[in-house]
Nucleic acid binder design. Structure first.
Lengths: 197, 197
DNA sequence: GCTGAAACGGACAAGATCGGTCCGTTTGTT
DNA sequence: AACAAACGGACCGATCTTGTCCGTTTCAGC
């Protein structure tokens, strides 16, 4: 995501050698994929396999597990904060709301494993990002409510909670599993249920 | 659930000795709890610990893992089929629908681990139960649609799929995790979104 | 009660997987 | 060419899982 040179641009310092940079990017991407599919306690071996590098490389880059998780979470939060800004830029409050809601639902679905773990892992930097995104989200929701487009009988925290719903894995009765379809389905009905009027 | 004597009442034959019966019940109950909280691949040891019996007892009762899973699934399906019959007995189609929908959502949430696995595991007996429940569900949904209480722009399979949504684990942003609250929340909004008119 | 058989429990062997280290080899830089 | 940085993966000990086996307990019929 971020491939600049400067020594301490993010929480994680970028290495100097080009192959090191390439591998750093690979590891982070692999970690995101791995965390998404296998939860927060994926093994380092699994991540290394996914990234196509040796375990040593992963351990060298992230000696502490928390550092890795912080990097992953930060990466996701950055994307979402961007979406939130786009949402606030929309003239139409409902449009902005559904944009952000969709974005949150999508990330939640993709990273079903890490829900609720934001608080524990990640240092103050991640906490700061989280706080920023929470604030933006609150504003997007309340604006839609103020304009009478979003039902007012729910606190903004509860609306936020609903973003977890589309992360459907299936139902007790099975059916042919089609996550994407299910995701879209829930999103549609949920937004219908949320609209004011 | 079923503690009768006959040798081959269900897929699983009931043992003769009273302690054996007691343990059989314990193991099944423990298996349900364990599968609910730890997914389909709980270890036999875990189930035994949960049941308060030795591993040997579990292995003796269910030499094949599939047999155990079939028993668990059958147990759940039995409860749901019962609910479905209650739903059809309701005079009010919407009341019946929301009863069954809630029941399905609850089981899905409680057994989030086993979604979609109904097809693979469980022999023809379970398949039969599944088919029966599917049929009942279809009737409940279509009756509500026919009476103009449930939106018609969704196929009954899709409505069924939605029962997976309330099984919220959390969202990317964390918040204080409160599954029960989230579950109720999604259910409410979803039912609002599903009502016709 | 007594006795035989059924059921029990948990120690145990074998294998998989995990976290984490270490060192011989490769690769980039100057 | 030469040096250092980065790499990869074999390897170790610990943990967890599957599945078996056998000495002990518990039930049922007499």
């Amino acid at each position: 995501m971020n491939t600049e040179r400067p020594a301490a641009s993010q929480g994680t310092a970028m290495p100097v050698r080009v192959d090191a940079q390439r591998n750093a990017a690979r590891v982070l991407a692999a970690a995101r994929r791995a965390v998404a599919s296998a939860g927060l306690d994926v093994s380092y071996h699994e991540i290394a396999r996914e990234a196509g590098v040796g375990v040593g490389t992963v351990y060298r880059r992230y000696p502490e597990r928390d550092q890795l998780m912080a990097a992953v979470l930060s990466d996701i939060l950055t994307e979402l904060i961007d979406t939130a800004h786009q949402a606030l830029d929309c003239d139409d409050a409902w449009e902005g709301f559904s944009l952000l809601f969709t974005g949150l639902a999508l990330r939640t679905a993709q990273n079903a494993g890490l829900s609720g773990s934001l608080d524990q892992h990640g240092g103050p930097a991640v906490a700061q990002q989280r706080h920023e995104l929470l604030d933006l989200t609150r504003r997007v929701i309340e604006r839609a409510q103020d304009q009478g487009r979003l039902r007012r009988d729910l606190a903004w925290q509860d609306v936020l909670r609903l973003t977890g719903a589309p992360a459907v894995r299936g139902c007790v009765l099975g059916l042919e599993p089609d996550p994407a379809h299910g995701h879209h389905l829930v999103l549609t009905v949920l937004l219908d249920g949320l609209q004011a009027g």
